[in-house]
Design a protein around this nucleic acid. Structure first.
Length: 116
DNA sequence: CTACTGACTCAAT
DNA sequence: GATTGAGCCAGTA
């Protein structure tokens, strides 16, 4: 694990986000806000989503495991197909109902707590 | 350089 | 409790 929280300003923001997302265990999900918080800037939740948009070049980024704080699949439309995200989640054992993660509170994976 | 936008979140009404 | 407005940072026009 790298020591973040200090170099955060812009340069490797995307890389850090990607690293965190890559660490998300299969069958678990996390939120933009938690990732941003882990990176130090809690208010950079939007940037996390922005980084996700740039993760298209990074096939190893399970962006489907990243949802908003309510567990809603807000970014599903940015996948190839709107059903892609749901499909990927279900393939990992995550139930998705009405664009929302079922049992989101249980499946929530917080980097700063789970990873430590 | 200023303005607008966005896979977000929080606070106030 | 649902809806609305403002704050936030980075990228693009």
């Amino acid at each position: 694990m790298k020591s973040y929280k200090i170099n955060i300003r812009r340069q490797d923001f995307y890389e850090m986000v990607w690293d965190v997302v890559r660490m998300i265990p299969s069958g678990r999900v996390t939120t933009y806000g938690h990732i941003a918080e882990y990176l130090g800037t809690k208010r950079a939740a939007r940037m996390v989503g922005y980084a996700m948009n740039a993760s298209h070049s990074q096939p190893t980024i399970p962006a489907h495991r990243v949802v908003n704080r309510k567990g809603m699949l807000t970014g599903k439309h940015h996948f190839g197909s709107p059903d892609q995200m749901k499909k990927l989640l279900e393939a990992e054992g995550v139930q998705v109902l009405n664009d929302q993660v079922v049992g989101f509170d249980k499946l929530l994976w917080i980097p700063s707590k789970e990873l430590l």
